[in-house]
Nucleic acid binder design. Sequence first.
DNA 1: AGATACAGGACCGTTTTAGTACAGTTTGTG
DNA 2: CACAAACTGTACTAAAACGGTCCTGTATCT
Lengths: 180, 180
Amino acid sequence: MLRISKMTDYAVVLATHLAVSDTPRTVRDLAGESGIPQPTASKVLKLLAKSGVVTSFRGARGGYSLSGRPANIPVLDVVCAIEGPVAVTECSSEEASGSCEYEGSCEVQANWQKINVAIQAALHRITLADMVRAEPSAELVVLSRSRQDALERQQIAVPTARTQEATDNDDHRADQRISG
Amino acid sequence: MLRISKMTDYAVVLATHLAVSDTPRTVRDLAGESGIPQPTASKVLKLLAKSGVVTSFRGARGGYSLSGRPANIPVLDVVCAIEGPVAVTECSSEEASGSCEYEGSCEVQANWQKINVAIQAALHRITLADMVRAEPSAELVVLSRSRQDALERQQIAVPTARTQEATDNDDHRADQRISG
DNA sequence: AGATACAGGACCGTTTTAGTACAGTTTGTG
DNA sequence: CACAAACTGTACTAAAACGGTCCTGTATCT
């Protein structure tokens, strides 16, 4: 869920590489050591520079360096640099006139903002400094609980024990694959 | 940033509609009152049923109803029902062999999980019951601060006052449009 | 039996994404 | 000064994902 684009992933990788050296690095170096194709790395770094996360130095002996201390740069900035400031739902981005006169839908839309805030807060707390120290936490399996909840819900569903054919999804989705 | 697909948006809308009535509703009804095209609504509801968020009743007088109390169904379940359990980064989904032998990248990848957990925790806290009561909170503007942080960072960047041409992005991205 | 309604795919046009390429500009160096 | 090294900006393309529709099958109620 909540797919973050590959470009954004690259951006975090590149920013992390910049975080561990204080002299400017060239695109070629960064691309080489991160395994990201050079033109693509260039594109990503250009975006990062445009939004001020990194600073660019042109000309011979130029390159990119972080615009600040890694501990002061939240991952949110990196993400926003690539994906733009668009919100989670579409109708919250434009004037949202016309299509959203269904009040039932739009009261939901108002609450998407709550979710939006929560997610962005989470991304704001984590900084690039946190990203460099790799600590593979073991409590990641928590994620897959939600699936289990769904199954437990099956038992206590509506009292009328009618068909309940939704129970047939035994484990053809056991590829939870979070532990990565 | 973090675009949630329109399908997922639909799913939350539909689930919210189901949350306010305890008798099963047909696709036609739900589609009609939510403004979602009927075939699309059907597709979404099928997915929700498959992952157990809603329960389906076939045949005449059939329909869909929530599989549990709205307060017990986190939005995370709805989102996962549509988008699947894939993680934020791509290389954390497969076995991630082969492409990820760059240790610099992969230590970052390990930390993406941290972000993943944070986001999913946020989505887990909010339930369908929260989505029903529409309370347009006014403190949403917090989001756009991150942009401002970036600008402030420009001032204190690397001490060597070289080119700093990244400062030229005055406000051609002032369309922060979060207030919705 | 017939109408109602969900299930499960197949299908298709459009948009987005990822990646590449190229011409231009800035800056250090010989 | 000329050249090379690097970034800047824009345009372009192939592939994948997304949004949406439709059709056939099956279950259930009347």
